[in-house]
Simulated scan of single mutants.
Amino acid sequence: MRVLQLIDSLEIGGAERMAVNYANALHQRIAVSALCVTRNEGDLKELIDPEVPYLYLKRKRRLDISALLWLKRFITEHQIEIIQAHGSSYFIGVMVKLVTPGLKLIWHDHYGKSEFLTERKTVVLKRFSRFFDAVFAVNEKLTLWSKERLKVKKTFYIKNFIAEALPFDADFKISGAKGKRVVCVANLRPQKNHHLLLDAFKLVLEQDSAYTLHLFGSVPDSLNAKSLVERIEAEPFSKSVFYHGTYLKMSAILPHFDIGVLSSDSEGLPLALLEYGQAGIPVIATDVGQCRAVLGDFGRLVPAKNKEALVEAVLSIDFKSSKIKTCAEKFKEKVKQHYGEEAVLNELLQVLNRFK
């Protein structure tokens, strides 16, 4: 089998990280596993296995003929049979399929606003979906949506998976009292609702000033992200909130923290949740997207946009309780068994074999 992962960017994000994860993991299991980024390289390039065939198209326009021909040559050179096009890269995926006889195209839908699918813009997507041989979706809502709205019968729920944890970085230094270091790994986008998290954390500090909040993630070029960074710097509690920016090797440092949180208004299947589980720390997440199915009874689910529930969940975690430790350990095992590389890749390969 010869598969190409197609993605528009290698900036840090869920879809981008999964494209790299798939390229690296499949490299050990199939004849050819390649990766092509169409528009912008980014930090995630550092994580690509050097043995994975890689192409950067430097695509400047939506319909860039030179980039299209370059991609076609790459596909021919490596005898690619299947393209797994992540997110918005489906456009050039369809274009190259039309000029490459026999090429199969699978669209991988990572849409993060699965709670707001009625607001999703679909005019172009619906026109292009007739050329999809299948759709992979990261949660069950998106799977049903593709079947009903795009009329793609071969739509599969394919879980996100997490790569093997890196060795623990004992030298990484963080501030805060042990047992009260809260971490959130999420890019500063509106649907992640960091403002709600800050509102809740402010109330937490009123009851226990020893807590610290540590934020990791990129800052998109948006007013929301800029206002969030400005707020962190301006608030009276700024000495208790630490924005660390982007960090590629989160699995090496997450065990330093005590509680992992997600305050999102909407999600697909968040990799951060899997990373918290892999690190073995207690988890609090809003009940959106696939979070309930992933977390189950091994963490705390709270309603979206409810800061009081988030405050109560943080303050209720008692590290003297054996239940907290047991739940974290059970969630860690669940992540390994059901969302680890081996488990998900076995499911994926069974599906891909249908398109050979």
Rank of each mutant, 00 (worst) to 15 (best):
R292V: 00
I162K: 04
E312R: 04
N224P: 00
K320T: 10
F216E: 00
A31P: 07
Q290P: 00
E333A: 07
K239V: 15
D43M: 12
Y339W: 03
K334H: 10
K97P: 05
D43T: 08
V99M: 09
I281W: 08
G102Q: 09
I12K: 04
E329D: 15
L205S: 08
E11V: 13
V96G: 02
G87C: 03
A293D: 14
P303R: 13
I174F: 00
Q278F: 01
S33V: 00
R17F: 00
K154D: 09
T246L: 12
V283I: 14
E341S: 05
V283C: 07
V204I: 05
H256S: 08
V124T: 13
L269I: 06
F331N: 06
H244L: 03
M18Y: 04
V3L: 12
R17W: 06
G296A: 12
L6R: 02
Y339M: 02
L98S: 10
T38I: 06
Y157P: 05
L348M: 06
F116G: 13
L254P: 03
S114K: 03
D221I: 09
F168Q: 10
T76S: 11
Q337D: 12
G112S: 04
V229E: 06
N160Y: 02
A67L: 10
G268C: 04
S33T: 04
I324T: 08
I284A: 02
D169F: 07
D297T: 13
D208T: 03
Y22R: 13
Y22C: 14
F331Y: 15
E16H: 02
N139G: 04
V335R: 06
L269Q: 10
S316W: 15
P53S: 12
L103P: 03
A343H: 03
F128C: 08
L254H: 00
N346E: 09
L213F: 09
I75T: 01
D208R: 06
V351F: 05
K336I: 04
K334I: 04
F216D: 08
A137T: 07
S9I: 11
H110L: 01
S33R: 10
A285P: 04
P50Q: 06
S66P: 09
E341G: 06
K141N: 04
E267D: 10
G42L: 09
V124K: 08
R149K: 15
K334S: 06
N139L: 00
S227M: 11
D169N: 15
K336S: 03
M95E: 12
H86V: 04
E11S: 14
N160S: 06
A85W: 06
V204E: 07
K45Q: 10
H78P: 00
L63R: 14
E119F: 14
E347H: 07
M18V: 09
P50N: 01
R2T: 01
R181C: 05
V124W: 07
F91A: 11
V283F: 09
Y243L: 08
T246K: 07
K154Q: 11
A293G: 13
G340S: 10
F161I: 12
A210Y: 15
L205R: 00
